[in-house]
Computed example of a mutant assay.
Amino acid sequence: MSHIINYVKLLTLLVFISHQSFGQENNYDLGSKAFDDKQYQDAISYLTKAVTLDKYEISGKELSMAYTYLAIIRTAHLEKSFGSFQVSEILNNHGNIKLAIDEMSNALHFQNSSSKSLMNKTAEKLAEISIKAATSIVDTLATLNTVNSEEQINEVAHFIIYEFERLEQISGENWKLEDALGIAHYYINEKDVAMRKFNMARELFSTLEKKEASSLHVLNYMMSCEYLFNEQKDINTLNQILDEGITYIELMLSQYDEGELDGIKELTKKENRLQLLKSKLKK
């Protein structure tokens, strides 16, 4: 008789626990509700738990939406905190850029029909502001290099690589991103990696109907030619890149106004350096 009573007690307890668990909202539900209520800090907290602790307990659709909500919040935060894209504003987001890119990559990986419409515009926006941020910082690298601040150069170059290396998964192949990453790798002496990035950037750039003026793309030519000249690995390729670089700089010079003397002088110096390398090859 006692074992029957114990069985009834156990059954009652199980039913009670079952009702309790069904009655509780999970992290995804709480995060989704917080997102709808614009309580974004709470949403981040709950949704982060949903994609880590509850990853195998929630549905595929919920996992996709959780990553999408996180990516939307992170992107909006970055866009606001980047402000006018001053270098200090970008560097203050150390870790946040990579986190937004990682979560957007996960959102794309797990996307479904429900999340796709929400995600596409956000993915485009994240790619746009991230590439703009990356190119802004690389411009600073060139300035730092002129004052021989090796420690600062290494710090900024590693920042660029750490934060933006996975951006291609969102942006697709992009010549500006390849130039930025190539320059960063070059400055920390990872020159083989830099050359692969530069080659990809030039290949993508060559497909453009209208050639955009870019100080970073000029650096692509300068660094690629310097590397190939010093290594003396492939003279034919070096000659080709020298010709392309000189032609590109001349195109940029033709777009300058007469009053922009500093820009004209700087580009002329770079063209002269490429011309000098070309003359040395003929000797």
Rank of each mutant, 00 (worst) to 15 (best):
E163T: 05
A76W: 09
N96Q: 10
M195F: 03
E163N: 06
K278W: 01
S84I: 13
F159D: 04
N239W: 02
I101A: 01
F159N: 02
V15K: 08
S215W: 02
S18D: 10
L219R: 15
I101Q: 02
K176A: 08
I73F: 04
K176I: 13
I4Y: 10
L141N: 10
M119F: 08
M1L: 14
A76L: 09
L228Q: 07
K125T: 15
E168G: 03
I73S: 04
N96R: 11
I153W: 00
K38Q: 11
N239H: 06
I246T: 00
L276Q: 13
V193S: 10
Y221M: 04
H109Y: 15
G182T: 01
S115G: 10
D102W: 05
S81D: 11
Y187I: 02
D102Y: 09
Y186F: 12
S21Q: 15
A134H: 01
L13G: 08
N92A: 08
V193A: 05
I72Y: 06
S88V: 12
Q39I: 06
K121N: 15
Q232F: 09
S171V: 00
D102E: 09
L118V: 03
D262G: 15
L14Q: 11
V218Q: 01
K61Y: 07
C225G: 02
E150A: 08
R196T: 14
Q275W: 07
L108E: 06
L11P: 08
F85L: 05
A66P: 02
E151M: 10
Y46C: 03
N120H: 11
I188L: 00
S136C: 09
G182H: 01
H109M: 14
Y28N: 06
L144G: 03
E57S: 15
T146V: 10
N189S: 08
L11I: 13
F16N: 10
T268V: 04
E178L: 12
T75V: 06
T143A: 10
T146M: 14
L219I: 10
K282I: 04
I241Y: 15
M1T: 15
G172N: 04
I137V: 14
T143F: 14
N112H: 05
Q41M: 12
N112Y: 05
S254L: 03
E226L: 06
K38N: 10
I161H: 00
D192K: 15
